[in-house]
């Protein structure tokens, strides 16, 4: 029967494709794209408590003059840069040592270094606040033990030390993940290449620079991407450690948006900042489209 054949062909053709892509597209459009569009829309209105009138770009103008918004944006940028250097850099070095430097105990160490990734932010906040506590905390006791001075304002309460501390905790949290990806990539490099380099008398550092790094360049890009996006999206780590304090010293866009929307109840101003976040997110996305595309061509 002709109709069955048509159905069959359609099932093998576009219907297959649309059935396959349908659920993801529907869920994602309803729960991500639509709210994102609404965020854009509500950002053009005054706060509900102030009448909720259409004010065009009023919220954005206010944002430009809001020092806390700029602090948050700056912290986000610092976070991205620091994490790129520390998480990806340290992760790569650790992976290289695990890959080439040692023979025994590699699995155990890999597991230990990876472990913090699975710890919930709620838990990370609890443990690190206590470790950094300035009167009884672990770090204070260690400092006293070896006769080092401890910062008088503590760490998470000090406007200059709090953010570096958050970065440090982030490294502790994620370096194992980066290391795992890099290690996987390094294990894909043929042993013959290293052997050849060894016969040529190349040092470990030379081998690392001339063989390992080029061999893992795509994994490096992937790690960089994960770190950039992750650092940009950060909310929970800062929320559980300092909630943006002391004052607004460690505010990032995530915490400032949630605070404005839910605590100070300026949902439309928060929507305006969310739009900035969405725009930057889309910018990262387009870089990834570009990255993918250039990769396919080569």
């Amino acid at each position: 029967m002709a109709s069955t054949r048509t159905i069959n062909r359609a099932l093998r053709g576009p219907i297959f494709d649309y059935i396959m892509i349908g659920p993801a597209v529907v869920l994602f459009s309803v729960f991500i794209v639509w709210p994102a569009i609404q965020t854009l829309y509500t950002s053009l209105f005054a706060e509900p408590t102030k009448g909720g009138a259409f004010i065009g770009l009023g919220n954005y103008r206010e944002m430009m003059g809001d020092p806390v918004f700029w602090i948050a944006l700056r912290n986000n940028l610092i976070f991205i840069l620091a994490n790129l250097v520390l998480q990806v850099g340290l992760g790569t070095v650790l992976a290289a040592i695990l890959d080439r430097g040692i023979r025994r105990g590699s699995t155990l160490m890999r597991t230990i270094i990876f472990a913090p990734l699975v710890i919930a932010p709620v838990a990370i906040g609890v443990m690190w606040k206590m470790i950094l506590e300035p009167n009884f905390g672990l770090l204070r006791q260690l400092a006293d033990g070896i006769g080092l001075p401890f910062p008088t304002q503590g760490i998470l309460g000090d406007p200059y030390l709090a953010f570096p501390a958050i970065i440090g905790v982030g490294v502790w949290n994620y370096v194992g993940f980066m290391m795992t990806i890099m290690l996987a990539a390094m294990q894909g490099i043929s042993k013959d290449v290293y052997e050849a380099a060894r016969i040529d008398g190349a040092s470990a550092v030379q081998t690392f620079i001339s063989i390992t790094l080029p061999g893992v360049r795509y994994a490096l890009v992937l790690c960089g991407l994960i770190v950039i996006v992750g650092s940009f999206k950060t909310f929970e780590l800062v929320y559980v450690l300092t909630a943006g304090g002391p004052g607004n010293a460690t505010q990032v866009l995530g915490t400032y948006i949630v605070e404005s929307a839910f605590l100070v109840f300026q949902p439309n101003y928060a929507a305006g900042m969310s739009v900035i976040v969405l725009l930057v997110a889309i910018l990262f996305g387009s870089l990834q489209v570009y990255n993918r595309e250039s990769k396919v061509k080569t």
Partner: peptide, 21 residues
């Protein structure tokens, strides 16, 4: 006050008082 006021949680400050510190 004790050291690191902004780094100390209210709870720790209560524990300090209740522990003769």
């Amino acid at each position: 006050f004790n050291a690191g006021i902004n780094s100390v949680t209210p709870e720790v400050s209560r524990a300090m008082f209740a522990s003769d510190l």
